[in-house]
Design a protein around this nucleic acid. Structure first.
Lengths: 187, 187
DNA sequence: TCTCGTGATGTCAGTCAGTGACATCACGAT
DNA sequence: ATCGTGATGTCACTGACTGACATCACGAGA
């Protein structure tokens, strides 16, 4: 028998989501989360930098995936087309099976200013990554920044619509719809 | 003789700025700040919600001022014109005499992720306030959100240019220049 | 099979942010 | 002269987070 069960990080993520949803972020201690996951609080901090980060562990994977899609766009694509490809590729990660988890996670964040702060800085780092990737493709600095900013805004709005809307609509469709609305606004 | 000198909040703000700049945010304790201001740590938390908020005490004043300018714009002004008036009015607050303080404050925030998070949520609340004010003027919801987002983006970029640029340029001029650049981009 | 290094964890002591309850005291009003 | 009030101090406490060190299952190699 193993001294400790494998997958501590995953269990901690699950436990944190459950407890944050059950009693709220403020009323949950790291010790509570660690107990439910069957480890000590010290182990929690070996896997996650702080009490907020446990809800954002997947964000780097999302960022890498989207930046890869942006980089993989054909050289002939305009900055906004490349950004569109990147944002639409989020659908590879946020598929139907993850929608319920995303809903619960979104509700917890929406209820907690501290978590909103962390969410905002993650979005900002995505914007920065998009900007850099676009500049590496040869886009003008100002254009790159503006396209990146717009792309992340579209992602954010689309994500909110996706978790609030019907269950059978893929997020990629929502994103394309949001982009169409944007095009109408600026026309 | 008074038991305590007046202006504790102001002294705490000053002390915090100095210490954050001298040794960095992480290496400064609330007790350090309170000591330099001649009060106890408990008093610090009576004036500011947490260790970050002491650097953002003026942000509500700025928000109120800009929203007032937005609301005061003539009814005939388009959403983007109203937002422009709001953002330009920031020049009433960030005049030449405050530029040096703004520079130091900006440098501290740029060096501290925790403070960047707080900055981002302040910007988000400004965006929300702009959006609401525009909708109250009768703007379509989507248009209001987009104009607000754009206005705050312009403010952010302009503020960075202002603190990095020559000392004798009013921020209102920088803002107008940024808006002109934006108009060129979308043309 | 024995030994040994390694990685993930536990244990413990400590610092510091933040809060609640209660005491203090200068000052202005009555 | 007294009293209420507001800003502060004091104290005890919870909880986030860290550093140092101990433990122990497991796999590689002798």
């Amino acid at each position: 028998m193993a001294r400790w069960e494998p997958g501590a990080a995953g269990r901690l993520r699950e436990a944190a989501m459950e407890l944050y949803a059950e009693r709220g972020y403020d009323s949950t201690t790291v010790a509570d989360i660690a107990d439910r996951a069957g480890v000590t609080a010290r182990t929690f901090f070996r896997h996650f930098a702080d009490k907020r980060e446990v809800l954002f562990a997947g964000s780097e994977e999302l960022l890498n995936h989207m930046v890869a899609a942006l980089t993989a766009a054909p050289a002939s694509a305009t900055p906004m087309e490349a950004v569109t490809a990147a944002v639409v590729s989020a659908g590879d990660i946020f598929d139907a099976s993850r929608r319920d988890f995303s809903r619960r996670r979104y509700a917890v964040i929406a209820a907690t200013p501290e978590l909103q702060e962390r969410e905002l800085i993650k979005m900002a780092s995505m914007t920065a990554a998009f900007t850099e990737a676009l500049r590496n493709r040869g886009a003008a600095p100002d254009v790159a920044a503006l396209a990146a900013e717009t792309g992340i805004a579209v992602f954010r709005v689309s994500f909110e619509r996706w978790v609030a809307g019907p269950a059978d609509v893929p997020i990629a469709d929502v994103i394309r719809s949001t982009l169409a609305t944007l095009a109408g606004l600026t026309a």
